[in-house]
Computed example of a mutant assay.
Amino acid sequence: MTQKAKILVLNHHQIQQKITRIAFEIYERNAGEKQLTIVGLTGMGYVFAELMVTKLKEIASFDVQLIKVELDKSNPKIEEIILSEHEPLEGKSIILVDDVLNTGRTLAFAMVPFLELKVKKMEVLVFVNRSHKLFPVAADYTGYELATTLSEHITVNLDPNASTVHLH
């Protein structure tokens, strides 16, 4: 069996540009907020959330809070979702962050802890949107739209010195 070659989709510089663009877009849409809560999903989604928080703190006038949602992305179960909540989230504006939006299943599960809370609003940010929507989850902020087949895979590496996005 032959291994598929990796195709570079975005290099480090392009990723940094997209992070900056998204941060300004978030700031523009939320300029009236006092606080914004960025919620990163386990793995590269949380790394992406950390990068967004860093960039937002550079440009935004509102306070930015970071929390994490831990779940098994390959097999999420409602009872196994852990939210690293630092303070009450009622009345807060929340942006749920993941690296890749494929079918929407993982993001749908990640929203579960917030369903009982009376949040002000919830938006979704993904770095790559593959557009294979099976669940009614849409990204409000997207770094890169990429039409792929279901057999292709996207690898997002957000290493601070050598970030890349590959298709294979």
Rank of each mutant, 00 (worst) to 15 (best):
M1Y: 04
Q3V: 12
A5E: 15
K6W: 09
L10M: 07
N11Q: 05
H13T: 15
Q14D: 11
I15F: 02
I15T: 02
Q16D: 08
Q17H: 09
I19K: 12
T20M: 11
A23S: 06
E25F: 07
E28G: 12
E28S: 15
R29S: 12
N30R: 06
N30T: 10
E33S: 12
K34L: 11
K34F: 09
Q35M: 13
Q35V: 11
L36A: 06
L36Q: 05
L36W: 02
T42E: 15
G43W: 02
Y46C: 09
V47D: 13
L51V: 01
L51E: 12
L51G: 00
L51S: 11
T54C: 11
K55A: 12
K55L: 00
K57M: 11
S61I: 08
D63S: 15
V64C: 12
L66G: 03
V69Y: 04
E70H: 08
N75Y: 07
I78W: 00
I81M: 02
S84P: 00
E85H: 04
E87T: 10
E90V: 10
G91W: 03
I94V: 12
I95G: 00
I95D: 01
D98R: 05
G104M: 04
R105A: 04
R105D: 00
T106L: 09
T106P: 08
L107C: 05
L107K: 01
F109K: 05
F109H: 07
V112C: 13
L117T: 03
L117M: 09
L117D: 09
K118A: 07
V119C: 07
K120Y: 08
K121W: 00
V124N: 07
V126M: 03
N129A: 06
K133S: 14
L134G: 13
P136G: 05
V137Y: 04
A138T: 13
Y141G: 00
Y141R: 02
T142G: 02
G143N: 03
E145A: 14
A147D: 14
T148M: 07
T149S: 11
T149M: 09
L150R: 15
L158Q: 01
H166K: 13
H166Q: 12
H166C: 08
H166A: 09
H168V: 08
